[in-house]
């Protein structure tokens, strides 16, 4: 059995990469994919601790997270489609109407 910490390090690395993608990328599709990466990292932590304690609750929570991620992807991509229709672009820096 591997130490749980190694799974946590893997989850940390994935979350870090996802955060970097959300912060640094301008393509809104890549930003959505980075959010999926971060949700996956959270799932790894849930499953790792579920294994550590021999308790299945973490896996159920991870399943619920997957469902939330699917809904988020559907709504996010619908928003991308409608933005693309209105502005013909996927650059998130062009979407500053509510900020200005």
């Amino acid at each position: 059995m591997l130490p749980i910490t190694h799974f946590l390090y893997l989850a940390f690395a994935l979350f870090l990469i996802g955060t970097a993608g959300v912060l640094l990328r301008r393509n809104v599709l890549i930003v959505l994919m980075s959010i999926e990466l971060m949700l996956n990292a959270a799932n790894i932590v849930l499953v790792a601790f579920s294994r550590m304690w021999g308790n299945t609750d973490g896996q159920v929570l991870a399943m619920l997270t997957i469902a939330v991620a699917a809904a988020e992807a559907a709504v996010g991509l619908a928003i991308v489609v409608s933005i693309f229709r209105a502005r013909t672009g996927t650059d998130i820096d062009d979407l500053s109407l509510l900020r200005d």
Binding site: M33, Q59, A62, M63, A73, L77
Partner: peptide, 22 residues
Amino acid sequence: LSATFLAAIQILVYAGAMMVLF
């Protein structure tokens, strides 16, 4: 991590459905 069912769900939902959507 002996979460075999979750692994199957992961491949079905993420690698299957969500990536096709993307």
